[in-house]
């Protein structure tokens, strides 16, 4: 309750700017790293690391094609990126999240889901049946993945006695590593690949199969925003995994914490990129089966262990 009094408006705005700049600024870089890894695995040279920045800038200037059957067309991209940015504002990056006074883990999960909703609404708005198929698959991916993330975060909450991110981090730092948190972290990691929409889980935008699915009619600035949102998710989920589930020591000053965070997130980017490069795409029912039979059990095991006290 006293949190609101402790945090001043200036601090909130400062942290918010920091979060947004870091996430928006570094997200295309993460994507660039993943592309370079893919190229290396494919024995190619690959594009420069800053290629995604150039892609987005170019897209921003391209002509925006609006399908004539479109209804409420303009809403999708800003809402999607806006929701992702909101999630970013709730993410700890080594510093406490700027909006920690306004939302906890549940709010975070729902804002991530809001990004998915925005993709789906944008897909429906196009009137293209391929977009509908993509939107349907996007929803089914959400069914598979969000519960796992929720269970993992609830495990952390049960250990900490609170659903608020700063409290979870404090409590974990104080209590030290535990079996349940490790298991939950593993589950979150298993879900990470699908959260960020990389192979083998890039089913909603299966390029060769349904022509980018929800984004089939998107072009220019709209497509740029969707891509930026997708890149940003990598950093956001990576940071959550690192901050909540890895028992980091809180170091001297917050810039060091931030650097450590992004270093570890960089490791995750490499891992995700490698998996992305060597795997084929799964079908949606295979992916749902994988999550519901294997990953959910890992997550529930973690929660069970936490509820008996370990």
């Amino acid at each position: 309750m006293g949190q609101v009094a402790q945090v001043t408006v200036a601090q909130v705005i400062g942290l918010a700017v920091l979060n947004l700049v870091l996430i928006v600024g570094l997200a295309p870089l993460a994507e660039g790293v993943m592309r370079r890894i893919r190229a290396i695995v494919h024995s190619r040279k690959g594009p420069p690391l800053i290629q995604p920045y150039l892609d987005i800038l170019k897209l921003l200037g391209k002509e925006d094609l609006v399908p004539e059957a479109g209804v409420l067309w303009q809403i999708g991209p800003p809402l999607c990126l806006g929701a992702v940015l909101m999630a970013a504002l709730l993410t700890p990056l080594g510093t406490p999240p700027p909006l920690a006074f306004a939302g906890d883990a549940i709010v975070f999960i729902y804002f991530v889901a809001l990004a998915g909703i925005a993709i789906m609404l944008g897909a429906f708005a196009s009137g293209n049946p391929y977009a509908y198929v993509g939107a349907s698959r996007e929803m089914m991916m959400i069914f598979s993945v969000e519960p796992v993330a929720a269970i993992a975060l609830v495990t952390a909450a049960v250990k900490a006695g609170s659903l608020s991110f700063p409290k979870m981090m404090e409590s974990y730092a104080a209590a030290g590593p535990s079996v349940s948190m490790v298991v939950a972290g593993v589950a979150f990691l298993l879900a990470l690949q699908a959260q960020v929409g990389k192979l083998p889980f890039d089913i909603p935008e299966a390029d060769q199969e349904i022509m980018e699915g929800p984004f089939i009619e998107r072009s220019g600035p709209g497509l740029a925003l969707f891509k930026l949102a997708s890149y940003a998710k990598m950093l956001i989920f990576g940071s959550i995994l690192v901050q909540i589930f890895v028992p980091l020591p809180r170091l001297v000053a917050w810039p060091v914490d931030v650097v450590v965070n992004f270093a570890l997130v960089g490791v995750l980017v490499v891992v995700v990129g490698l998996v992305n490069a060597v795997n084929p795409r799964l079908r949606i029912d295979q992916s749902m089966s994988y999550f519901s039979r294997i990953v959910v059990f890992v997550a529930v095991a973690g929660l069970a262990v936490a509820s008996i006290g370990y």
Partner: peptide, 13 residues
Amino acid sequence: IARMAQAPSRVVP
């Protein structure tokens, strides 16, 4: 961000 470059828009089928 989207309107930064003031890209034109066109209605297509």
